[in-house]
């Protein structure tokens, strides 16, 4: 390295213009590479990439079990086995089923909806980091990544909810008009989960360590959201003040799970829902969805660093 440090003044190709680079750029209408677009422009770009978002989600969904002998059947078997374990531990060993009518549908609804919310947040945290190659190679609105993760999990949720409907019929529940309430509940849950995934994607991309902590945070959240037991009948035994029960029931996971139970299960009582439950659900969905999107967009140009 001791040879001549010929930093030749550009000989022929680029005559250093008299203008400063910024002025020259402005003169010819050049823009800063990799700058963050405005929020409306960002929404438009994202909409333009909607086919990529769904194709990427579907591709990962179908690639997931492609080497397994049973293939796509695992999309159905895995959540059912999961629920079976919870049924054994909480339903039989710990007797959480006491005082809960139709415990099996109650448990399945809770596990499936929670699984969607929890996995969305968990994979959302990793969504930028695990696709860093893609982020560094191609241009697209980065929000496509957490959103397509949630779309993938939502497809999974639809499969399991279909199975749940079949099981409900097998348990002798007849389809009723209130089943239609499952549709808005699913949509609100999806918006909420996508918002959380975007918030966590931004945090996880700058602090990869967070993804190690998420399983513990999520487990704590799961156990306090009445996934395997009814918050009412569990807390009634102890002398908890009323506001504790109410706060637990107003937490978004419990709201969405209980709304789904209320829609699908005959025996689930309306008084188990917190007051103004639909307003609370819409509020959580909007807060997470809009807030999460804006929060994610604010760091758009920084993803891919480090």
């Amino acid at each position: 390295m001791t040879t001549t440090t010929t930093r030749t003044a550009p000989a022929a190709a680029p005559p250093p213009p008299d203008l400063a680079p910024a002025e020259l750029a402005a003169l010819h209408g050049l823009t800063v590479s990799g700058a963050r677009p405005s929020l409306p422009a960002y929404v438009r770009q994202l909409w333009g990439r909607r086919h990529f978002v769904t194709a990427f989600a579907t591709a990962r969904m179908s690639a997931q079990y492609s080497t397994a002998k049973l293939g796509q059947v695992w999309h159905l078997v895995t959540p059912l086995l999961n629920a079976l374990v919870y049924y054994f531990i909480f339903g039989i060993v710990m007797k959480a089923s006491h005082g809960v009518a139709d415990y099996i549908p109650f448990l399945l609804t809770g596990v499936f909806v929670w699984d969607f919310i929890g996995s969305s947040i968990n994979s959302g945290t990793r969504s930028i980091h695990s696709n860093i190659g893609l982020v560094r190679a191609l241009h697209f609105p980065r929000a496509s990544l957490p959103i397509s993760t949630v779309v993938q999990l939502f497809q999974q949720l639809l499969v399991t909810m279909g199975a749940l409907a079949v099981l409900l019929l097998a348990f002798g529940q007849m389809p009723r008009p209130s089943w239609l309430l499952a549709v808005p509940t699913l949509l609100l849950t999806a918006v909420f989960a996508a918002g959380c995934a975007m918030v966590m994607a931004r945090i996880g991309s700058s602090m990869p360590d967070v993804s190690q902590l998420m399983p513990f945070v999520l487990r704590t959240w799961m156990y306090s959201s009445g996934v395997m037991w009814s918050i009412d009948s569990m807390l009634a035994k102890d002398a908890f003040p009323h506001w504790v029960t109410l706060a637990l029931k107003c937490n978004p996971a419990a709201v969405f799970i209980d709304l789904m139970r209320f829609s699908l299960i005959d025996s689930f009582p309306a008084h188990a829902l917190p007051p103004h439950v639909w307003a609370i659900a819409v509020g959580w969905a909007l807060l997470a969805g809009v807030g999460g999107f804006v929060y994610f967009w604010k760091a758009e140009e920084a993803y891919g660093r480090g």
């Binding site: 910024a22 010819h28 823009t31 800063v32 590479s33 190679a137 191609l138 140009e301 891919g304 660093r305």
Partner: peptide
């Protein structure tokens, strides 16, 4: 290409440079 954020300085480009 705007894919790797710069620590300082600026890159101006016409359209979207692609890799």
């Amino acid at each position: 290409a705007g894919l790797q954020p710069v620590a300082s300085g600026k890159v101006y480009s016409h359209g979207q440079p692609s890799l």
